[in-house]
Design a protein around this nucleic acid. Structure first.
Length: 274
DNA sequence: ATGGCGAGAGGATCTCGA
């Protein structure tokens, strides 16, 4: 099982890159996308189906939007917080689901959760408060579920650098978004539910990034951040073989500012032998 | 300190991202 995540920054603008990348990676089983920026009727199902992929998508005009592509059919597709938190009084789930940032599906017995975490704009802003509250809601969402009952893979653009190894320059990190203590603590509470950062199981050193600003020659100077992650539930640790960042799409002409991350898992018992 | 680049909306020049 090979699962990837990629913030494409508009699936319309990046369709050629996506299709080319899928063509170059026949090993992939599941690809989770963020910032598709299209409504569901606008999602390019045909172009993707032509390459042999099923897909589930949950989008809106201009902003946000998430999608899951899969070689095999997707089951138990659950868009937004609603499916899990809808019954909880006082959570105002409908308001939280106005921004399309969360999509779940089950594929081959793996529960996949694809996230596009709010950016937060600037420390102390309304959007920053929204980001922290959104992460609290994600914690509530995952708390409702039995993480031990089936293999869980939580992926996406998390918009937080977990540690100082995950950004090129950690100085003054409390003054800018993505590496403040509050953001890290909000994510730590989620991890403490029983998730592992699969990339760090294999790569202890810093200097590995998934996002480089378009501005200021950030890519050329390798001024990057690792903000795209693939988390696995504890039970999957023994099946994890590797988690790698593919730096190539970020170097193509007209790129997304993010580059994909891929998790390699050994086949479990519930999967048929090839 | 600010903007720097790119996408979308809309039809010039905004907002937003991270």
């Amino acid at each position: 099982m090979h699962i990837a995540t990629w913030n494409v920054n508009s699936i319309r603008a990046r369709l050629d890159h996506l299709l080319a990348w899928l063509g170059q990676h026949p090993e992939l089983d599941v690809v989770c996308l963020q910032e598709t920026k299209v409504t569901d009727p606008e999602f390019p199902v045909v172009a993707i189906a032509d390459l042999g992929w099923h897909c589930a998508f949950y989008g809106q005009k201009t902003y946000n939007g998430v999608a899951i592509l899969s070689r095999r059919p997707l089951e138990a597709i659950s868009p937004g917080f609603r499916s899990v938190l809808g019954a909880m009084p006082g959570t105002e789930v409908d308001a939280w689901d106005e921004q399309k940032r969360l999509l779940g599906a089950t594929i081959d017995g793996y529960r996949i959760l694809n996230l596009y975490v709010p950016n937060g704009s600037a420390v102390g802003s309304e959007k920053y408060a929204y980001k922290l509250a959104w992460l609290d809601l994600l914690h509530k969402y995952l708390q409702q579920l039995d993480i031990q009952s089936q293999p869980w893979v939580v992926v996406g653009d998390f918009n937080v650098a977990f540690t100082d190894l995950d950004l090129h320059d950690p100085r003054d990190r409390e003054q800018k978004i993505m590496a403040t203590d509050a953001e890290r603590q909000a994510w730590q509470r989620v991890l403490d539910l029983g998730f592992l950062d699969s990339f760090r199981l294999f790569t202890p050193e810093g200097g590995h990034y998934t996002w480089w600003d378009y501005r200021g020659g950030a890519l050329r100077r390798n001024h990057g951040w690792r903000i795209d992650y693939i988390l696995i539930s504890q039970g999957l640790r023994e099946r994890a073989i590797a988690c790698t960042i593919d730096p190539l799409p970020r170097r193509w002409a007209g790129p997304s500012d993010h580059t994909p991350v891929i998790l390699h898992l050994k086949n479990g018992e519930q999967e048929a032998a090839p």
